[in-house]
Structure formats: structure tokens, C-alpha cells
Write a protein that binds this DNA or RNA. Structure first.
Lengths: 228, 228
DNA sequence: TGCGCTAAAATCGTATACAATGACGTAAAC
DNA sequence: GTTTACGTCATTGTATACGATTTTAGCGCA
């Protein structure tokens, strides 16, 4: 995702990406322990490459490395959650504006495909995959803006947002938020930068307010973690 | 820098920080090869920890990892240089505004100390250290804004800016740019958020325009690299 | 039963060893 | 003289081994 450009995907990059997707799709929950031996056995690689992968994920704040204790799927605090969306609100609206001013018909097609797949996944009941694709939509917009540096940051923030949603999402809002993406793609298609910027800004605000950020640090999986 | 919070600084973190500072201070030039054996011998550690450190630096885009070829101090392209300053212009002005609204007298003292040390280093002829301290000033402002997520991004962008300056700085501007930081600190001291935002915006613009971003990709150290 | 101590088991941090890939120099052919 | 093929060397990628730290289970005792 944010790794350096390897022509042939290195072992650690493959493991890191697989784990990252699993986290995005909420198949790995916040707080879960990622034992080096266990992960290595699953992917058929040695602890060396697993450690490299975990370090990469730790750098993206998707896992937390505790010295001599191991790697755990990160559990963003309420403060961190607010910070992530604050950072996104600084980066994404302006980036959406740039994207709107540069979007080609092919770009629009790719975005539309993302949305279609997202709807399909949602219809199939695979909310995890739908969430993942929803995030990819944001990253794709940054890519269209031809700002790979900002795109990397946004990709990282989207990843962390996935963890934040896993922890703080309020169940009552049934309809995920597909309308926002539809409106965005329309603004991009007609190259309306100002509209895209405004839509993205409100979309992020809606996302933030749909979270329940009232203090409860997390939902610990076991009593021990609760009392740690 | 952006690593996970380790209570006791791990070996790789120590090596990575030392290398990062050396890069910030322009003691390691863009394009230089960082042999694992060599670095390991210097710091008295094995290649295992050196590799971890290099991977961390690669994630921050300070070094470039070429598969089966090794690690090299990064040589940001002109496009990357523009992207870095574009990202900074998205993040730093608003962050400076937040910092101004939150700055305590102690914060101002710390910032002033940074400036003083910077001036002292400059006076002592240690331009490398002055440049490093100048970057730390920007990171410190983000820290004052109490936005650690954004602060991490800014820290990474400042690091990369150091490399960009090493490659594209125009020598003719003698006076580094100390006035800008002085003006900023004054705005922060009187809690003038709007002024701080505007000052930071122009400061970054000045920095960008003081670079010579006309295409020459770099100054290769040897003929071979030139023809690679 | 509950608490504290001890020891064993598990897991991580680092070093070393081996395999694989690319770099470089030499030599032969055109 | 230039170029290409090959062999050797150096350097990285991965696996394994060992020591250090933490966790946990067992045991005795209050």
C-alpha cells in the first residue's frame, strides 16, 4: 500500500498486504494478537519476513508493537479517531477538488466500477468487503489528483478509519453512505472542483458524526485486557 | 520519529534515528549507498537490526530500497518535491492556526529555544544542524497543536524536505529564512491564529520558490549512476 | 479458598548461517 | 578495438539458532 515500489512483490509485502486487507474487512478485530510464529505458519514463511510485515503495518498504525510482548491489531483511542478525521478533513476535500479538475473519462469509469462492486458486496451481505471498497474509493480519488504523496497519507488514514469504524460505529445507521459517493462521482464527472471539495468535506463530517466517540476506549475481548 | 512508542529505545530505532539525523544534517547525501554490513559494523549491531532500521527509513521515503541491490539515500524527483510541498501547504497552515490558539507560554519558550539554537548553529557555520533545527521547529508547532497524527505526517514531510533542499536548493539566497520563523513565533505568542496560518502559508511558498525545480533530476555522484 | 512465590513454557529480540540474486572483471570472438 | 559471454565476487533475502523477557501454570502457605 504505502511500501516502496517493488517490481516483484517481496514476501513481507505480500504478508503485510494480506493482513492489511483482513483488517480492512474486519476479519481481524482490534486488539487481536498476531503471533509471529502463528502468522508465519499460516503464510509459510519464517518469522523474519513476518516481523518485517508487522513492522510495516505498525508504521501505518494498523498494528501496535509492544516490546517483548508482540503485535496486536491496533485499537485507536477516541483522541486518535478524532485526529484521523481531522487530518482527513485537511487533506481530502482539496484533493477531491484537484481530482475533479483532472479526472478523465477512464478515471470516472474506474471509480464507477468501485462503487458498483461496493454495492454488489453490500447486497451480498459482505459488509467487510464493502467497507474496504468504500475506502479504496477515497484512495482512488487521491490517485486521480496525481498527488501520490498525499495519496499515501490518505491511504493510511483510510486504513485507520477502518479500525475506527470497527470500534466506534453506531449500528443504527443502516444505509452505509453510498449516496455520498454517488454525488461525488457526479461532481467529478462534470469537473466541478468546488462541488467535489464541498461534498467531500461534508461526507467526512457525516462519517465523523456517525461515530459514537463518547469515551469508552474499546470493547475488550477478554477480562484480562479489560483490567490490564 | 514516526515509529511506535517504545519505552526502551530498540536497537533498530536507535540506528534509524541516527541515520535520519545524519540525513537531515546533510552528512549523508542523496544517492549514497547504505550497505547493511557497513552500517551494522559502524553501530555494532547485526544486519538484522540494520535491515529493520532501513525499512523504517524507507517507509518515511528517506531511503530507497532496491530489491537485491540495497538501500540508498533517497533522491526525490522534481515531481516528488512539488508533491511534498503541496502536502505541507495542505497541512501546516491550518495546523499553525490550531497551534496559535492553543500555545502556552511554555510552548513559546520551547520554540524560542529552537530558534536560538538554530541561530547559534548557523553562526557556528554548522548549516546542517541549523537546517535540522529549522525542520524541528515546524514539527514542534504541530505538536503544540496537539494533533499527533498530523504531526507525524509533517515530521515525515519535513524530513523529505531536507533531502529536497539538499538536491534543489539555490545557493544564492544566503540568509536562510530565519525571519519567517521569528514572525511565526510572534503570531503564536499573541495567539493570532489567522496570522499564523497566513505566515505559514507564505513561508512554505517562499521555501518552494527558493528551490530550483527545473528538471535536472539530480547531481549523480558518478558516471555510472548518470548512465544507469 | 485465596494469595504469593517459583519454575517452566511460550514468545520476542538479536545474531549467525546459508541461499539467491545482481555486479564486476576477464577473456574470447568478431 | 569493441562487444559479448562467462565466471567469480560481493551483497542482499530468508531461514534457523540462541539468549532475554514475559506470561502462565503449579505449588505451598496463610
Amino acid at each position: 500500500m504505502q511500501g516502496q515500489a517493488d517490481q516483484r512483490e517481496s514476501g513481507s509485502a505480500r504478508v503485510a498486504e494480506s493482513l492489511a486487507i483482513a483488517i480492512h474487512e474486519h476479519r481481524l478485530s482490534p486488539g487481536m494478537k498476531l503471533s509471529e510464529d502463528e502468522v508465519g505458519e499460516i503464510y509459510g514463511v519464517s518469522r523474519t519476513v513476518v516481523r518485517a510485515a508487522l513492522q510495516e503495518l505498525a508504521h501505518d498504525r494498523l498494528v501496535e508493537l509492544k516490546r517483548n510482548r508482540g503485535a496486536f491489531v491496533a485499537q485507536p483511542s477516541v483522541k486518535e479517531a478524532r485526529e484521523v478525521f481531522e487530518a482527513r478533513s485537511l487533506l481530502e476535500p482539496r484533493t477531491a477538488k484537484s481530482a475533479a479538475e483532472r479526472a478523465t473519462p477512464e478515471d470516472i469509469k474506474i471509480l464507477q466500477k468501485h462503487i458498483d462492486e461496493e454495492h454488489a458486496a453490500l447486497h451480498a451481505g459482505d459488509t467487510g468487503r464493502a467497507l474496504h471498497l468504500s475506502g479504496m474509493f477515497h484512495v482512488e480519488i487521491a490517485r486521480i489528483a496525481d498527488q501520490s504523496t498525499v495519496a499515501d497519507f490518505i491511504a493510511q488514514l483510510v486504513s485507520r478509519s477502518s479500525l475506527i469504524i470497527a470500534l466506534y460505529w453506531q449500528r443504527r445507521t443502516a444505509l452505509c453512505e453510498s449516496h455520498a459517493h454517488d454525488a461525488l462521482i457526479k461532481a467529478l464527472a462534470r469537473r466541478d472542483g468546488a462541488a467535489a471539495e464541498e461534498l467531500m468535506k461534508h461526507h467526512l463530517l457525516d462519517l465523523l458524526t456517525s461515530l459514537d466517540l463518547r469515551d469508552q476506549p474499546s470493547v475488550p475481548k477478554s477480562l484480562k485486557e479489560a483490567l490490564n
